[in-house]
Write a protein that binds this DNA or RNA. Structure first.
Length: 211
DNA sequence: CGCGTTTGACCGGCGC
DNA sequence: GCGCCGGTCAAACGCG
């Protein structure tokens, strides 16, 4: 139970948005399912806002209530931080579930084992940055199409989500992406954005990373 | 040298 | 049963 009593936790910083927005944003052309395809920039922006908001509140809390010291101030701040972190997490969960339920039309049957989502984007990039790491495992020429279809699997070991990417032959500017399955782990990009916040919470709460 | 991609073989479903 | 076709495997390849 050796805990690092850092005198004062470092203030949260505004985290720069990770996604490098392409000069040519992929335009959603057709979407049969409303699955979250390319990276959810709006979600990341919202998380950032929550982080900076929480940062402002906690630092303000430290400044204005410096009558509280030590553990009391830390505890106070951790409550505020936890509140915002929880809100952010709930927001993520809510949106994710909403999108998934929209896609899986069946209400309570559990047979929707591997849902598929297809959408089309007008973009120069064949593979869109959706925040996950993918490993290509095949490419095949499909009938009546001048462009081949590529097969990808999620690089995460325990996750077997797959996706196909194919460029339309009629309109070369359009890419069709098909997702199959649901990730059983968070996007690395989102965790990248959230981890500073989570670390801060642990620090303020006096958690030690090891159990 | 390690790891992700490439690429032809392989396989299973489906229609004739 | 056979051949087509989409999907996957896995060894070779090649890039950092």
């Amino acid at each position: 139970m050796e805990r690092q009593e850092a005198a004062l936790p470092p203030p949260l910083r505004q985290i720069p948005l990770p996604p490098p927005l392409p000069q040519n944003p992929p335009y959603l052309v057709a979407d049969s399912s409303s699955h979250p395809p390319p990276i959810d920039h709006q979600l990341l922006a919202d998380i950032n806002n929550l982080v900076s908001l929480a940062s402002g509140i906690t630092s303000a809390g430290f400044n204005e209530r410096n009558t509280l010291r030590g553990d009391a101030a830390r505890h106070e701040a951790s409550l505020v931080m936890s509140e915002y972190a929880t809100a952010a997490m709930e927001e993520i969960t809510e949106r994710t579930l909403e999108k998934r339920s929209k896609a899986a039309t069946s209400s309570r049957t559990r047979k929707a084992a591997s849902p598929r989502f297809e959408f089309q984007t007008r973009t120069e990039d064949d593979v869109l940055d959706d925040g996950y790491r993918w490993r290509k495992y095949g490419q095949k020429a499909v009938k009546n199409s001048t462009h081949p279809r590529s097969y990808y699997r999620c690089a995460h070991t325990t996750c077997n989500v797959k996706k196909q990417v194919q460029r339309l032959s009629e309109d070369t500017g359009i890419v069709v992406t098909t997702y199959e399955g649901v990730h059983n782990h968070p996007s690395e990009k989102i965790m990248e954005t959230l981890s500073p916040l989570l670390r801060q919470i642990q620090l303020l709460s006096g958690f030690s990373p090891d159990k």
